[in-house]
Design a protein around this nucleic acid. Sequence first.
DNA 1: TGTTAACCGAGACGGTACGTCACGTCTTACA
DNA 2: TGTAAGACGTGACGTACCGTCTCGGTTAACA
Lengths: 205, 205, 205, 205
Amino acid sequence: MTTASVDAVADQDRKGPGRPRSARADEAIIEAVLELLSAGQSADALSIEAVAATAGVGKATIYRRWPNKEALLIDAVTTMKGPIPEPAGVSVRDDLVTLLAGMRTKRMHRYGKVTACLLPELVKSEEMHKVYQAGVVEPRRDVMRGVLRRGVESGELRADLDVELTLLMLSGPAIVQNMLRWNPAVPDEGFAEHLVDAVLRGARA
Amino acid sequence: MTTASVDAVADQDRKGPGRPRSARADEAIIEAVLELLSAGQSADALSIEAVAATAGVGKATIYRRWPNKEALLIDAVTTMKGPIPEPAGVSVRDDLVTLLAGMRTKRMHRYGKVTACLLPELVKSEEMHKVYQAGVVEPRRDVMRGVLRRGVESGELRADLDVELTLLMLSGPAIVQNMLRWNPAVPDEGFAEHLVDAVLRGARA
Amino acid sequence: MTTASVDAVADQDRKGPGRPRSARADEAIIEAVLELLSAGQSADALSIEAVAATAGVGKATIYRRWPNKEALLIDAVTTMKGPIPEPAGVSVRDDLVTLLAGMRTKRMHRYGKVTACLLPELVKSEEMHKVYQAGVVEPRRDVMRGVLRRGVESGELRADLDVELTLLMLSGPAIVQNMLRWNPAVPDEGFAEHLVDAVLRGARA
Amino acid sequence: MTTASVDAVADQDRKGPGRPRSARADEAIIEAVLELLSAGQSADALSIEAVAATAGVGKATIYRRWPNKEALLIDAVTTMKGPIPEPAGVSVRDDLVTLLAGMRTKRMHRYGKVTACLLPELVKSEEMHKVYQAGVVEPRRDVMRGVLRRGVESGELRADLDVELTLLMLSGPAIVQNMLRWNPAVPDEGFAEHLVDAVLRGARA
DNA sequence: TGTTAACCGAGACGGTACGTCACGTCTTACA
DNA sequence: TGTAAGACGTGACGTACCGTCTCGGTTAACA
């Protein structure tokens, strides 16, 4: 007994014949991933079978869209991260604090766990690394890079500032601290402000 | 090789009766892990069964010593990292560069991959996190902390320097860049020097 | 080949409007089944998907015509068996030999394999059993029955001969031996003659 | 949570170390097959997964013992057929009737269905054919062959009787009729007697 | 000469089962 | 008691087909 679905809205530009892919399935799958990540503790214990069952979808429907579990997780994480916050442009310091603090929102409570579970695959597969960089990291880095560049142009920051290294000095500590709780001696409270101030101390004109 | 051999040297202080644990088994297991990590590409694809087969050891012998795969990997990584480099003490700048550059040695070529595969477990299990921090991270951080403290005392660094945050500003970028190739626009060449200089620019007295 | 072509010859009496079924599709499907049975070794490993692909036909086009795989196989087998040989009528013995030998023709090399793969379905489904009996078995049995009846009428065979049982005594051994190689001690050479002679020894008037 | 069984009785002569195979598992698996064949209608719809679930056993435990579904079915069928009936030796006719009637016992009600589902595999795989012949068919044929041979020696049957062909003439009709209901015009009642009488009519001295 | 209804290919859909692999536990015989 | 070997129940893997259901596009008989 099969279930004869009522949904058949294409979600991607295919010209060929054949039944188009169900947009409903896409949503259900991503939603199932996020739900399972919320409920269950571990995120690499997330199995495709469980996702399929939760989404009410066949396994093949998942494998038709994503080549493996990690690609699916990347999409889910991208969805979870939501839109990129646009800084107000008041001052370099405030903009950077806003952006860094945005990495620690409540809705990203489990973002660290999920991303940590992605890392093995990012390190293993060059292709996955590219996808993640291009789809998740670079867009956010672009915003921050814009803030720094405007700071240089406005004279607020040193003219010879190494922008790329500075980006790394801002995001690197935030990542290992937020995600991996690397240095337990550093308090969460006011972390973004302290970090930005420390970095800017060596970056101002 | 089927039957157990002439090895029966205890490696831990037990008084009770019965056959003591074979020290040879411990070595063989760790060695097998490192060999498999070198040979195989992926590091989470390392299975206990393969370790046991390679080491010529029963699975139970492994589980008797380590509670799970990640604990075993932590021990293997610790072995792989080798001794902590002791800085010469000439200048804060040179000492920090030495320490950071030590994270990029040739023999740690695969260190990034292996560690990345540990991260999910570190994030998942609080206990594993503690073990890794205490056994691997903290000893190395202690050395770096000493360098910074001496810099403050000698007046080379600002008196009100936030030492813990500075540690994070040094190790965070190094970790994400070395391990995860986070910002491809930053060159590997001279990375340690550039990073230390940038951090120190805001840290000097 | 994407767009449907110039074929549209109805093969069944429909009156309503709408496009008639393509006779070309029917032929292509049966042909594909026979081709796959020839090429591939096993006959229950024959999948509808493979048939559709080989015939250049959609799966729905097959399911529109046959309710399941076995019904399709029965049609294919019937086609494969070809016309029923009409005995010359010279003598009962020669006619029976002719008919039995006709079950072992070269072109039926794979008939045994295919039919054996049908048996599970025949045993399972009463309806399939009827179809196969009526469409394949009974026509051939009718011819043989005619031979025996003429033998009884002509006095060549015993008047009280149990015709139906004798039919079974002729076809039963031939089936299990040809199809299933039941008794390896019985040679293929001259099998039909030996069997007919042995049966007739107890059947002559 | 695993279940730590209490059974560990070897069922096959292995000398090497390691935990011996559980005899309980063997029984449970065969029993599960027979139970499923009894309950469910179709016998090729019997899945290894269902057998494993019914037997309370892992799939791997089944695959460790039998290479595929059909080999398992052969073992199950052999078990189902039970011991070979030993003829009384009164007369050739009565002995043959006894043996043939033994193929139609009540407990073999479903034997036909099961065997029919084996046939595809027997025809497909030469190796499976040999196993079935040697393990199931030949032992029973040996008994019947002995009856015929004794009949020839005692002068009850013709001296030049083709024993092997006669075996086929007895078993062939019985198989196709009992298993496949080949000729619906032949009644089940008294089938064994009628067949034996007909065959013997041409076989007596 | 348009409808109109059934056909066609392609292929996505929710499923089931496949046979393999690794898990972590257990049970042997031997040392 | 420790050890190597290996069977155990469990459960996920990724693949192959199942039979059903859209799709966009023919194709003929009917209006």
